[in-house]
Design a protein around this nucleic acid. Structure first.
Lengths: 191, 191
DNA sequence: AGAAACATGTAATCGGTTACATGATTAT
DNA sequence: ATAATCATGTAACCGATTACATGTTTCT
């Protein structure tokens, strides 16, 4: 999903500026699954304007730079509807953290525990953040998307907590008690 | 995590060719969180060789092109150890699917149900695939990484199944019975 | 005093994908 | 027959990130 389509979609809901689009992605539930930088958004908006898919009006503001508020055009709506009906590419989960854990056996045990603690704390912070977002949501789709983010992160966190001993066990028998190597998959679903 | 570091890491485990690295990411558990194309891997390997972090020997094969098997050097190991101790960037979940669902209200109800069905089926297929991978894993880290992929995808699937009525409810009262709009978060964790 | 928010834009750079080129073997 | 697997590599292209440039107001 390219930045142009993302902008077009967000403008199909309401008139917005480039800055507002960026903030919406940064702070809103959608930001968990879609990202875009200013350096991508502003050129995308220019391009969409050239193609007649959006229009803008300039609003002068005291003490601030002019604000360009974009509106989607009829053709823009048609193009976006078309984009929504195209084949949807698969989800992509990218995690440098899991890559690092692949080499857990070679890491210093204290360092390993530290990054596990940190990651769990980060997940916790994100869960708290999204939980408050869900409360704000008045429409269904934002709540739905926030809920999915919550479900995924909660599962990831729970998995780390429940299974970290598999990686730490080897070098931590004395401090955490004896663990044989249990079969995986036991605590995967959380039920 | 750039492709060079990924190659270096996989070569720290065993001698491998570019082709084998690609296959490992395509078929193995790590592929759920790390991707790299041939067009990225081959130049990365060339670059690593130039920098003295890996070496290769050419193995002639009957009927096939020569195979270049790469080995990590001592310096390569040092550099990789350094890479593993650097700050780990946050996980990134990208989903065009969730972006499309953001606009669920504007979609044709039948189309909406169709893409939900499809996505759930895809998740199911992936779950089956990973489950068989976990069985093959003899070492702990691959099983651990596969388990995390399983946990995440299972949670995502369950969330879709449990909450799709929130998006479908509006236009599907007759076929699926009456749904008031429930508060989100109820079936998020699966407990 | 200094950081963060508001607000838009450009240019350099970059990492990576896609497609192309080549070609035998093996499985369907 | 045809597709898939094995095997490496290059080049064009692309979308996007990062950094830079500019400047006021408000919060800490």
């Amino acid at each position: 999903m390219d930045v142009q389509t993302v902008c077009l979609g967000l403008l199909s809901e309401a008139d917005r500026s480039g800055y507002e689009i960026k903030k919406l992605l940064e702070d809103g539930p959608l930001g968990n699954f879609v990202e875009a930088s200013f350096g991508a958004i502003y050129p995308a908006l220019t391009r969409l304007t050239e193609d007649g898919l959006v229009e803008f009006r300039t609003e002068s503001q005291e003490g601030r730079p002019d604000k360009k508020t974009y509106s989607i055009t009829k053709r823009g709506r048609e193009v976006f509807a078309g984009a929504l009906s195209e084949t949807i590419s698969p989800d992509r989960f990218r995690s440098d953290f899991l890559f690092v854990l692949w080499f857990a056996e070679t890491l210093d045990p204290d360092y390993l525990s530290e990054i596990l603690d940190n990651r769990i704390a980060e997940y916790e912070a994100k869960i708290a953040r999204i939980t408050s977002e869900v409360g704000n949501a008045s429409r269904t789709p934002p709540a739905f998307v926030a809920g999915q983010a919550l479900a995924i992160i909660t599962a990831a966190k729970k998995y780390l907590e429940d299974n970290r001993h598999l990686l730490e066990g080897e070098s931590r028998r004395r401090t955490h008690g004896l663990h044989s190597m249990p079969k995986l998959g036991a605590t995967v679903t959380g039920e």
